[in-house]
Design a protein around this nucleic acid. Structure first.
Lengths: 342, 342
DNA sequence: CATAAAAATGACATCGATAGACATTTCGCT
DNA sequence: AGCGAAATGTCTATCGATGTCATTTTTATG
């Protein structure tokens, strides 16, 4: 293993000077600096992080807690985070974690210490679990909360406007001539479910249209399986809706399956739109019209904030709340209302 | 920060004894050992890994290189690896990595040094990239190769029998009465493509059936998009096959889409089967009959081998080649041949 | 050219845990 | 009581990099 001693010897300087060069510390004569850099390159020297961080005492790792790797939403975020980390030249440590297990504290504290983590990114719905936030706060872990329901006075939150997005995609349906629009909502404990449903209703209000009847509002929970069950029920209604806004893409995909099963053509017979824009959205037929979460942008924001924070001491001027723009992605699962009338 | 000094003080023993307990070193009286363990638990003490590994000089991290997080296969493996790592009580560091970029070496060497990696799990097709293997070998990184084409005398390989699985699922189709069976093969550079196609042909030979005509064998590349294109072509053939064996689930899903588009019912009009059993397989309608890769079993094997290897010095007795059993998962995308005859 | 000020560099202790070489204590047993 | 084995302690060097403070070299100025 190459150490700064080897470099120092080759460069005929002291280890301290090499250290100075590594850390861009005080003034080192240009010629020595370049000589040392050249030698470091030649010998493919990378300072030992263990030793460095032992001495400096600063933890630096960024961790991402994943609850359910089967969820398209979490998968998408994970890959966006990995990309963003690569761009930023830092490393992300991904860990499966569930706050529902009763030994979550010891699990987490082991993880933090072993992986030298001082920054953690929390996804919904863990980002809203109070005891988790408190535990991390007590352990001096910085957090970035992705789309939290409740803000935190210490931690940065990065989100998109779920309600507005839901309103906008509903308005899109209204503008396509749809009036009989159903909604399959998400898990009642997730705030996103509420926000998306609120946005859905708002669109009707803004267009001075009556709210869809209760029959058209059914309860899902973001999962494909449940989506399949409830959408099968929904499609048994005699007076079928002409469009369905599903709380997320998994549910929308399930709705497509249910529609296919009943021999309904999409979008000719029924329009189906989703939310999130996960991979699944383009891996089914027809590809889903949906709301694209700004995954990469959110990931970049999170990674940059967290990796800059450790440099500064004054974290006071960090903007705590970030809302990033989403976009509506129009694909082939939606079309004009078949009757083309109100 | 709690150190062994704090523990020693509280337990009224020397740091040496604490160290002995931590490392299960020489004989420590049962009562003192338990006292110390109890105090460590109480004070939530975890030995500083930086210091420990700096002293011991043994790298320990296990890394997983991901090339394409959009691939269901890689996603599945990743989540299996995370699970297995959690079970084994170790940490997995996931990193996006492409051997196609020309700075892959420096990227990798930075990664290895920064994350303190001494074990890496390679998925197809990176596990067959010679220069990568050599580079890791030179850097004293232990590897576990998942489903490699070519074995390695230094590295463990963990695989399933792709050819036999392909044969078996084809036989399944034959036994269901299908004779006109098409195959969409994978990317020509992946050995899995070849193996799966060979298995496909083998099934016909074993049943003394003529090989399907060339028209029925088309070239895909494992991707949904390509699958959509080629399956659309395939379904234009006048004499349609009654079953299609797609090289993987993404391609099978695309084939389902193409079939839906043409108004074909699955499985009534056409049977479609995939390979891999990724999430997508159950997130489309109908859910796919497919071959299940033993993800978790392979992950466990890989993690266990790698994390045990660092304990022993004699790696000579490690079994180099592991072949794990797959299974055929029958779902609703397949049924008896519509004509029920030969 | 002398000399103070500024710039560049070096010697050494230190971070937390470990281990080697011994010294010392405790304990069970005859 | 006394012996030997087991248990534990003391002291110190070490891993690789960096902070503190002292020292050397260079530069500027009268």
């Amino acid at each position: 293993m190459t150490t700064i001693y080897d470099i120092a010897k080759r460069a005929e300087v002291s280890t301290k000077t090499v250290s100075r060069v590594i850390n861009g510390d005080s003034k080192v004569k240009l010629s020595t600096r370049e000589l040392i850099l050249e030698i470091m390159r030649e010998m493919d020297f990378k300072p030992n992080q263990q030793a460095r961080q032992l001495r400096l005492g600063n933890k630096s790792g960024i961790g991402l807690l994943l609850e359910d790797p089967d969820s398209g939403y979490q998968t998408r975020f994970q890959s966006a985070m990995l990309h963003a980390a690569m761009e930023a030249g830092c490393y992300l440590s991904v860990e499966l974690f569930s706050h529902l297990k009763d030994d979550w504290k010891s699990h987490l504290s082991r993880y933090i210490k072993n992986s030298n983590i001082s920054n953690i990114i929390l996804l919904p719905t863990q980002c809203d679990f109070g005891p988790l936030r408190d535990f991390l706060r007590e352990n001096n872990v910085n957090c970035a909360l992705i789309s939290p329901t409740n803000l935190d006075s210490d931690f940065v939150s990065i989100a998109m406007d779920e309600r507005q997005a839901a309103r906008e995609i509903t308005e899109y349906l209204i503008n396509m001539g749809h009036r009989k629009i159903a909604h399959i909502s998400g898990h009642p404990d997730h705030s996103a479910s509420l926000l998306r449903r609120q946005g859905f209703y708002e669109a009707f209000e803004m267009h001075n249209l009556p709210r869809p009847r209760d029959e058209y509002i059914v309860q899902g929970d973001f999962l494909f399986k449940t989506g399949l069950k409830v959408s099968e029920e929904l499609l048994k209604i005699k007076d079928l809706p002409t469009a369905i806004f599903a709380c997320n893409d998994e549910t929308a995909a399930a709705t497509c399956s249910a529609a296919h099963k009943r021999g309904l053509r999409i979008p000719e017979d029924i329009t189906i739109v989703g939310f999130d824009d996960v991979y699944l959205a383009t891996a089914i037929w027809p590809p889903l019209t949906t709301v694209r979460q700004p995954y990469l942008e959110m990931a970049r924001r999170a990674i940059n904030i967290l990796s800059n924070m450790r440099d500064k001491n004054d974290n006071d001027d960090v903007q705590l709340r970030h809302v990033l723009p989403y976009s509506i992605i129009e694909r082939e699962s939606s079309s004009l209302s078949p009757r083309g009338e109100i």
